[in-house]
Design a protein around this nucleic acid. Structure first.
Lengths: 167, 167
DNA sequence: TATTGTTATACTCTATAACTATA
DNA sequence: TATAGTTATAGAGTATAACAATA
């Protein structure tokens, strides 16, 4: 019960503070890069999900990005108005709407990707390359583990296979 | 210029999505634990900073926690009304106010710490213990590197020394 | 009856601007 | 003149509730 020498938990291993700080830095770094995109970093992630086919209907998109469905409607409205994505009824369940990236959307994403990657490198800059790669790998496992609990299981299974194929 | 086989960057290594997903999971896991605290997870982090003496004046607190000073005023008001922290003018610069934790605040934090630690373990659960420790170490380096850019350098220097002493 | 998405409304959270007091 | 903090107000962002269409 000694409390004077915290060896296990150093002064500032507060996970919440660390995650919040790094996440804010990421937002700060990307905001400038994607400021022209409707919805900023969030719009970028939505567009990326659409281009990469990680988006099916709006419900799964909201679950993946942590966006309420009522908010998502407006965000997609804006991206659709900009000609970046399009909505169409799911033939299998016409209540649901599939969100597809347009050709314009694909080109736009390609244009932003380099800037976003540079922002990511900026965030990871404090780590040597090998540590940065390790961090990405562990973070990915955590994100997929978390997503599991919210109901995005399939996505991460797909990506596990892709990672194996890539490595 | 081949674009068809993305080996380096697997399908879902999007740093922003991973960080956001894990951070949201952290908030979800802690919100219940600290819901009685004014300001929720944010109030917890402020109280923790005060108890651990990582808080000097309100400006540095805001920088550390990523909170605007106008928002911080209300948050501290609430914590002070609950008797958890107190404000006093800095003798060295009476424009500035030092934020101290009260005895009640210390006891309250101690009471919440176990629940928050459990929430942290929940977030890190997808990783084996050794990987979780590695993740914390790398994340800490990133957070301190990020904080450097916003002007919280001293904090992280202190904690580097503490980590060396602890290890 | 339950679910997907939309709309309108209300609420919360955040930032802008103006002010006080110190330096 | 510049800075730390406070206050008031406006703005952005978010969620709640009611609705339409489909299952």
């Amino acid at each position: 019960m000694r409390r004077d020498v915290p060896t296990e938990e150093p002064l500032d291993a507060d996970l919440g503070w660390m995650l919040g700080t790094v996440f804010r830095e990421y937002l700060r770094a990307t905001e400038a890069a994607v400021s022209e995109l409707p919805g900023g970093p969030r719009g970028y992630q939505l567009l990326a999900a659409a281009v990469r086919g990680q988006a099916r209907n709006q419900g799964s998109l909201g679950a993946r990005l942590g966006i309420d469905r009522t908010v998502l409607t407006y965000l997609i409205d804006d991206l659709e108005a900009a000609g970046l994505v399009s909505r169409r009824p799911d033939p299998a369940d016409r209540r649901s709407r599939l969100v597809d990236a347009t050709d314009v959307g694909r080109q736009a994403l390609a244009g932003y990707e380099a800037a976003v990657e540079q922002a990511e490198r900026h965030v990871l800059a404090p780590l040597p390359d090998q540590d940065a790669a390790t961090f990405r790998r562990l973070l990915q496992a955590l994100a997929c583990g978390s997503a599991d609990r919210v109901g995005t299981e399939e996505l991460c299974r797909v990506l596990e296979q892709a990672a194996q194929a890539g490595a």
